[in-house]
């Protein structure tokens, strides 16, 4: 897949998170889709491939760990960034074992997630060549 516009899916059951991230990322030229329900986000990743998936871990219904496992199984090339308000060493380890690109504990500044996304994008482009 050749990247023209990097596509990002954001899953967080707190609407405020997507509300904060979506416009800033779109302003930077990313194509962004946001979801607050993991079932809907999972449905979407079965329909199309995203370059980057950003997901919360602790959510109502299917948790983020299960979601990212499904995403990686469906599209191993998708880079997954985990964000969590309830960080533990065990969840960080488990996330990395499942192949996530980075792990961000909330709260974080927008600059921090921009930096991580840029790094993920760089990796995707390097692998494309």
């Amino acid at each position: 897949m050749t990247i023209e516009q990097t596509s990002i899916l954001i899953l967080d059951d707190e609407p405020i998170v997507s509300k904060r991230l979506k416009p800033s990322l779109e302003k930077k030229g990313y194509e962004v889709e946001t979801f607050t329900r993991s079932s809907e986000a999972l449905q979407r990743v079965t329909e199309r491939q995203f370059n980057i998936v950003i997901t919360d871990l602790k959510m109502e219904g299917m948790d983020g760990m299960q979601f990212l496992t499904e995403v990686k199984e469906l599209n191993p090339d998708t880079e997954v960034i985990v964000m969590t308000g309830f960080a533990t060493m065990a969840t960080a380890k488990e996330s990395y074992n499942k192949g996530v690109f980075d792990f961000l504990a909330k709260p974080f500044k927008l600059g921090e997630i921009f930096e991580v996304i840029a790094k993920a994008e760089k990796k995707i482009k390097r692998l494309e060549r």
């Binding site: 707190e14 308000g85 309830f86 960080a87 909330k106 709260p107």
Partner: peptide, 13 residues
């Protein structure tokens, strides 16, 4: 603020 809730959550965890 969501950030403050998240900060409490990290400490609770």
């Amino acid at each position: 603020h969501q950030e403050a809730i998240e900060m409490v959550n990290q400490l609770v965890t």
